[in-house]
Nucleic acid binder design. Structure first.
Lengths: 233, 233
DNA sequence: TGTGACATATAAGTCTGACTTTTTATTCCC
DNA sequence: GGGAATAAAAAGTCAGACTTATATGTCACA
């Protein structure tokens, strides 16, 4: 799942990044490139590349004669998919999940409204296909199949909105949905009401009913928020 | 204005980044580290760091025996403030501005609703102060003063929402608003209706009227969208 | 005692050159 | 013509020397 992967540089990043986003070094902490290079048993060149990437994420700041200082969380590039993944894997996963779900509740209804206007016939077809897939996997503990179609459904909506900023949130939504299925409590089959809403949403988009699409999506994200409230009141 | 600034590495990035986001190298184009190092007259180490940062923004992908290939635009980390700035400075500025304004229209109303619930007394005071500042600078071609308070106003709203994802969009909104004042046509004084809406919004938040705050913000962002339609129909 | 100029130490920044590793492309043999 | 051995190309890695900015401490002078 970790996208960085390749190269010595990536492996160091996959260790150091999560440590920082987990808050193991309080803001203002100073790290030194040489020490880090020793710790990870890599050359300074590799370590410098890692620091540069962390710096571009605004996780740290490198200054001469001082070292690499960890920045406070409110400076971090929290939209960086890498940072999101690191934080979701860490201790403040619940808080992060809530932030992202609230974000979804703002974005997705508007995206659905736009999708109703701009979706191509192919995208409409995909949407109904996904909805049918959700129905088919909505009972009998077929959680993986359900998740697959759910993710695909929301991806199509975001893409069909025609707004690149919305489209880029597909990965985030995928992460949130998959987190709900895998990490959190989800013994039961999915809520039948939610399934119905998705079917109706596919319908609304196909019929170019922007207002209805927006309203239905609002109900879906409301449900997601309430689900969170039940899990972590 | 360019945040990268510091260091030889930053200067190269400030040239190469905009070139890529401007689409000067079509997706799939292959760059070679050595050639780039020659071109910018820097060592390979520096060039490698630049490539690493571009890679973390998903602007390029580096593969052995192949080189540094430019990725298609739909892969880019379009929420990276650096990328946003580069793109706003480039040729597809209008399209980018529209994407961001649509994003605002989705986020800010929800943020305002939350701000009405969670804003501290200090934040409420700041809000009214900003609104007054906008009023004071709304006539007599005091565009800079108006912009300053406008940016501050929206920043407070986003921060007061209590959602870190929303808060982080403060810079984006600042960029959009400042872009409107500086780059685009804005000879006239700001729209009086918009000023009134901001004053009313500060009121609504102070009075904890979430629904009204959300509605007023929707009107503000609607106005911003219509303004764009007039400029680039 | 406070203040400013100066000296010093430190850690990042940069460059160079050699070597390794992976992956693509070519060649050669069957 | 196809598959295995081979060569080449580019990124990846490393080590060491040198440069530069800058925080901090020192000392003289007011």
């Amino acid at each position: 799942m970790s996208t960085t992967g390749r190269g010595l540089h990536g492996r160091v990043l996959d260790t150091l990044g999560p440590e920082i986003t987990a808050g193991e070094y309080p803001p203002g902490s100073v790290l030194r490139t040489d020490e880090l290079a020793q710790r990870f048993d890599v050359s300074r060149s590799v370590m410098r590349e890692v620091v540069r990437v962390l710096e571009s994420m605004h996780l740290v700041e490198s200054r001469r004669r001082v070292g690499v200082t960890v920045l406070p969380a409110h400076e971090w590039n929290v939209y960086d998919p890498q940072v999101i993944r690191w934080r979701l894997a860490g201790a403040d996963r619940p808080r992060q999940l809530r932030s992202l779900t609230v974000l979804r509740s703002a974005i997705e209804p508007v995206a659905a409204g736009l999708a109703a206007r701009y979706a191509t016939p192919e995208q409409c077809a995909e949407l109904t296909e996904c909805a049918l897939g959700m129905v088919a996997n909505s009972s009998g503990h077929r959680l993986e199949g359900y998740l697959f179609h759910d993710v695909a459904f929301h991806r199509v909506i975001l893409t069909a909105s025609g707004n690149e900023m919305f489209a880029r949130l597909g990965d985030v939504v995928a992460e949130v949905l998959s987190g709900r299925t895998h990490h959190d409590v989800m013994f039961e089959d999915p809520d039948p009401a939610a399934v119905t809403l998705h079917v109706q949403l596919a319908e609304a988009v196909r019929e170019r009913d922007a207002a209805r699409a927006e309203k239905l999506t609002r109900e879906i994200t409301e449900g997601a928020l309430q689900e969170l409230d039940i899990l972590a009141p």
